[in-house]
Amino acid sequence: MSYCIDTNVFIDAGERYYPPDIVPGFWKNLDGLIATGRMKAPEMLIEELERKGDDWRQWVYERKDTLIVPMDLSQIEAVTKVVAVYAAEGIDANRITGDPFFIALALAQDLIVVTNEKPRRGGAKIPKICSALGVPSIGLLDVMRREGWRLVAT
């Protein structure tokens, strides 16, 4: 299995749940997926991280060449499909920013979207759009379980 990781997963991990100085095993496991090409993200990830200097953000920037998939024709075509689904949901394309690019990468490369967004009634969150396109989406804990990660105390 290969994954497309949403920006909110990095933000939640780095700022809330798995800071590198406290839970280095999380980042080591994530690094393994990135190094083997099984964890990817579109260029939009770097834009959404805003080039701040937090340690965990620096960790992401240092893996940019392996993690980030440059925009290509298949992603451009997929973005068009994704934006059409947003429009069908009544969402103005001018109001959405990065999410379509994550879904489009997953659609173009047959990846599972990893996001911490939850479906909600009336909203066009990533899981809802993914579902409409037949793109699987799961949460970070689902990835950790599927991959058999164990974050143990020393």
Rank of each mutant, 00 (worst) to 15 (best):
D92I: 04
D72A: 12
L105H: 04
A87I: 12
G98N: 01
T97K: 15
G122W: 13
V152I: 13
Q109Y: 12
G25D: 13
S2Q: 13
A108Y: 08
V79Y: 02
P100I: 02
E48T: 07
M144P: 07
N94E: 15
Y17E: 13
Y3I: 06
I11Y: 03
F26L: 02
I96V: 15
E15T: 11
K81C: 05
A104G: 06
I103H: 00
G25Q: 14
V135G: 02
I91K: 15
L45M: 04
R121P: 07
P127H: 09
V85Q: 11
P70A: 12
D99V: 07
N29P: 05
K118T: 12
W56A: 09
P19A: 11
W59E: 04
Y17P: 07
I46S: 02
L33T: 02
T36F: 07
V82S: 00
T66V: 07
A41D: 08
A84G: 08
V85K: 08
T80E: 09
A84W: 06
V114I: 14
Y86A: 03
R16P: 04
P100G: 01
I22S: 09
L49F: 02
S137R: 08
D6W: 01
S74P: 03
P127R: 08
K40C: 10
D12S: 14
I5T: 10
K81Q: 13
E43P: 02
E117T: 04
G98A: 08
T36I: 10
I129P: 00
I112T: 15
A93R: 13
S137K: 12
I91M: 11
K28M: 10
V143R: 04
G98D: 00
G98T: 01
L67A: 13
V23E: 15
E147P: 01
K81A: 05
L105F: 08
G139R: 10
V83C: 06
A13P: 02
R95N: 15
L140R: 11
W59D: 04
G134E: 05
E77T: 05
P136S: 07
L67R: 00
R120Q: 14
E47K: 07
P127I: 06
R95K: 15
A108M: 11
G90I: 01
G25M: 11
L73W: 06
N116Y: 09
G139L: 03
T154E: 12
I129V: 15
G53T: 12
D55N: 07
